[in-house]
Structures are given as structure tokens and as C-alpha cells.
């Protein structure tokens, strides 16, 4: 485990995998409670995709560092998770917040995995290739909803704008540099400024079509937040809940 957490590439992969895990974890909780049956089913399919993508990436790390993917997913210390505070931002079962949050993350992950896939590692590239078509599907599906509900007018537009405003402040956390055990260097920053510019371009174009506005800023490179293991309080709650059953009998098969 220590070897993995001290490896720059592994930490970069973990940042995406942990985003996917926690996003899937929070969103799968909506299954059965969505605003309409058809979208409840679709959103649940996409949270299964997120969890599956996390697993694909944990399996990559598991193979490389001889670890059980479930141990990577469930048994790290809280500060060794590299997800950002946006993915764990509580939506309080407000569909607009859930939607906006998932969409902002999905666009980011799409761009991030595209870059990850170009790194010189055949296994990792193959895994990113498997994830990417599903990621595009998610970006399209969520973007469609942002446009629909944003441009619907009245109550709907107001709720969507409120949701963008609600998450705007934590959205930059997506771009924090991951890994509290690493020295800062360009390798795992992975072209942070370019990434932000490209992401913001896509996001702003869709927001404009939806009739919504949002201002997002790239955090300082030195920022210490979720990606460096200093998580918001709600992350710890979510992790505790996620590991509750597993802690009944540590080491047991489930």
C-alpha cells in the first residue's frame, strides 16, 4: 500500500478512481428515489458505470502493487483517499445539485482519462479506452439534462441556477494536485492549467445553452484539500458508512 501511495502515476490514477468510487457511492443511494422512474433507472445505470470504472482502475493498481482491489477501495486511511470535495458534496437529495455535480465531474473525468490514456503504459491505456465510450455517454446524457432543465424556465431554471451556485465554490477542488505523500512536480499535475481551460470551455458552452451562469476558478497549486487527503467532514461520514459492514469482520470474505 505504501509503495502505491508514494508512486506519482498511481496517485494520479487514484484521484480518478476515488472520484468515481465516491461519486458512484453517493449517487447509487438515489436508486429507487429519483424524480421519475425512467431517469431513476438511467441514473442508477450510470452510477454502476462509475463504480465499475473505479474498479477497473483499482484492478490496474492492484495488479501493479499486488493488492486486492477491494482493499484499495475500502481499507485505506481517510487521508490516503485522493478524491476531491466536489464528488462528496452532499446533494441532500436535491436532483438539481446531484445533476450539476455529476455533470461537472463527468466532463473533468473525461478529459483527465483521455490524458491518462496517453501516458506510456499499455495496460492503463487499454483500461482508459474501455472507460472512455461510457464516459462520453455520461457527459452527453448529463449535458442534455443540464440544457433541458436549465432552459425549461421558471422553477426549473431557478433550481438549476441555485445548484450551480451551491457547488461553484467547491468545483475548483477537481483541479487540486493529488497525493499528500508526494513532492510536488509537473508529472502528476498533468497539465493542470490546460486541463482547466479546456474543461471550463466545455462547461461554459453548455451552461450558456442552458441559460445558466457559473464562475469557476483554478485553485492555487499549493492548495491542500481532499486530493491531498485533507477532506471535508462529509467525506469522513461517507467513508465510515461505506465501510460499516466490512468492519464487522475485518479480513472476512463478503
Amino acid at each position: 500500500m505504501d509503495a502505491m501511495l508514494a508512486d506519482p502515476l498511481a496517485v494520479l490514477v487514484l484521484a480518478h478512481a476515488d472520484d468515481k468510487l465516491l461519486l458512484g457511492h453517493v449517487q447509487s443511494d438515489w436508486t429507487g428515489l429519483g424524480p421519475l422512474l425512467e431517469e431513476d433507472i438511467a441514473a442508477s445505470a450510470m452510477s454502476q458505470d462509475d463504480l465499475s470504472h473505479a474498479l477497473i482502475l483499482y484492478e490496474f493498481l492492484g495488479k501493479r502493487f499486488d493488492l486486492d482491489p477491494d482493499v484499495i477501495a475500502f481499507e485505506r486511511a481517510p487521508e490516503d483517499y485522493a478524491c476531491c470535495d466536489l464528488v462528496t458534496f452532499p446533494d441532500e437529495f436535491d436532483w438539481a445539485t446531484s445533476l450539476v455535480k455529476r455533470w461537472l465531474v463527468a466532463v473533468f473525468t473525461g478529459l483527465g482519462l483521455e490524458r491518462l490514456g496517453t501516458l506510456d503504459d499499455a495496460d492503463l491505456s487499454a483500461r482508459c479506452d474501455r472507460i472512455m465510450p461510457e464516459q462520453r455517454l455520461q457527459v452527453a446524457h448529463l449535458g442534455n439534462w443540464i440544457r433541458r432543465l436549465g432552459s425549461a424556465g421558471g422553477e426549473s431554471t431557478a433550481r438549476m441556477q441555485a445548484a450551480v451556485d451551491r457547488v461553484a465554490e467547491v468545483t475548483g477542488t477537481l483541479f487540486e494536485v493529488p497525493g499528500h505523500r508526494l513532492e510536488e512536480d509537473e508529472t502528476y499535475c498533468c497539465g493542470r492549467d490546460d486541463l482547466f481551460t479546456e474543461w471550463n470551455g466545455i462547461v461554459q458552452a453548455t451552461l450558456a445553452e442552458a441559460g445558466l451562469t457559473g464562475t469557476f476558478t483554478l485553485p492555487e497549486r499549493s492548495t491542500v484539500g481532499g486530493r491531498r487527503g485533507t477532506h471535508a467532514g462529509h467525506f469522513t461520514e461517507q467513508l465510515t458508512e461505506m465501510t460499516e459492514v466490512r468492519r464487522v469482520s475485518p479480513g472476512a470474505s463478503w
Binding site: 474498479l55 474501455r130 472507460i131 461510457e134 455517454l137
Partner: peptide
Amino acid sequence: DHDTLIWRLHDMTYK
């Protein structure tokens, strides 16, 4: 197909 994915590429045997 590549652009309009229906069936997923990841392992779905869990369902």
C-alpha cells in the same frame, strides 16, 4: 457503437 454506446464494455456479470 463507439458513439452511441448501449451495451457496456465493462464486466457486467454482477447483474
